[in-house]
Write a protein that binds this DNA or RNA. Structure first.
Lengths: 244, 244
DNA sequence: GAACGAATAGATCATTTGATCACTAAAAAG
DNA sequence: CTTTTTAGTGATCAAATGATCTATTCGTTC
């Protein structure tokens, strides 16, 4: 079974990675117009730091699309560079993948979320709503969701690390606050929180993993999910707030 | 990067595929005790149909664990057969994978669910609860969830087919019935149904994809999720029913 | 016990793929 | 302009991998 071209594997994937620096020079091998003397690939010499970043960004988009087993040759040809150049910047494919994990991981969890969630000067519903708006802004990305899923399936450490942080920075405060505000006799437990979380995250999974239609604006859906949970514990939710 | 052994990729994966017919004969290459004259693999002659089924079952477990790019040599060594024998039963790895998809797909969706969900002689909550108990019994399986996720990520047709059926056999009836029973002014839409569905399915994802701890018995969690949705639309839910 | 054919052993092929290396040329320094 | 530096190239290696083929072995059936 000859491996199919990556572009064929996932036709629905977003166009090209947004790498501003590269003037999309297609690899010379692509259609050297019959008579034309195959023009050599224009060699572009970049400062190492810049090139390295460019490679990592492209690698994020690439591995998100085709999976972690994507071939280094395909990645390099997307970048318009030679495969061997990759090895000037990374010792091995594995270390490139580590850089990819690092890159998608960084900045994904805001350190301000615990404070936001615990800020009792705001209504609980508003805090949770704002948190999930920011959260989904951060993770409902093609690259992030798919790399996270790929790495989850192959048991990469990325996921365990992420869940630990998520628990600490978001889910734990979330549960504390809902517990403190709960009115009825049943107290929320962590599974109630996971239930809310899952119902929201599943929106992203539908969109970026299964590539199924989802609402353009997820905020009203998120708001309703929050309302449902809060009301279940007798907490006032107030009027709808999903404006612009 | 030499490919790591499949057993090393996913140490948390369930032990061995349940293949009753194979007397777990480890591949001869594994530890032929120093002095011992390498004993020939015990040859087992099976009727073609049986062998084919055995291969497919093992392939399901195998690809679920290591991904669809798993190597045929590893699969065959798990089965205790030669790699070339696989090609006596399947033209190519691709056709083997097709058989795998077929196998995991079959019997996953019960044709009786629409009738169950629409049976108004039962309380709505009970219908939904029974449906999701059966549904999660069917799909909260290591093999199914992972193969479904792998094939979703690579854009396999399996997923589209499955979602079409799911919509038709379960989600559409579900929405109809909840709409019919709804009391408040807001009518449920499909996103409300997806919300319930996602919150439940996410339990399986946490367990089998991310391999994170989840409750042993998911039924109480499912019941609460259903209650929340129904109450949100003013529908009576009655006392808890999550017994044995 | 003879015939059939499932299964093995294992060599082998053509590609693919991660990785290496000696050389080349673009940019910067003098 | 010349020299120096090093980013980038193209050829190539070794191992892996899907697939094929031959000769042989042995369990089943008649």
């Amino acid at each position: 079974m000859p491996r199919s071209q990556p572009s064929a594997i996932n036709p629905g994937a977003p166009a090209e990675p947004a790498i501003a620096e590269v003037p999309a020079t297609p690899p010379a091998a692509t259609q050297p117009a019959a008579a034309e003397p195959r023009r050599a690939r224009q060699r572009k010499r970049l400062p190492p730091e810049e090139r390295r970043l460019q490679i990592v960004q492209a690698a994020v988009a690439f591995f998100a699309e085709v999976g972690l087993e994507g071939r280094t040759r395909d990645l390099s040809s997307r970048l318009g560079i030679t495969q061997s150049l990759l090895y000037k910047y990374f010792d091995s494919k594995e270390s490139l993948l580590d850089a990819v994990f690092e890159h998608v991981y960084l900045g994904r969890l805001s350190p301000e979320w615990p404070a936001l969630l615990r800020d009792r000067s705001l209504p609980l519903k508003e805090r949770i709503f704002r948190f999930y708006c920011e959260y989904t802004d951060a993770i409902f990305r093609y690259e992030w969701l798919r790399i996270f899923m790929f790495s989850g399936l192959t048991g990469e450490k990325l996921n365990a690390r992420y869940f630990t942080h998520l628990q600490q920075f978001a889910l734990a405060p979330l549960m504390d606050e809902i517990q403190a505000a709960a009115q009825g006799e049943r107290r929320p437990d962590m599974e109630d929180i996971w239930n809310l979380h899952g119902s929201i995250v599943y929106l992203g999974i539908r969109k970026h993993i299964y590539q199924t239609p989802t609402p353009d604006d997820v905020r009203p859906v998120i708001e309703r999910a929050i309302d449902r949970l809060l009301r279940d514990f007798g907490i006032e939710t107030g009027p709808p707030m999903a404006g612009p």
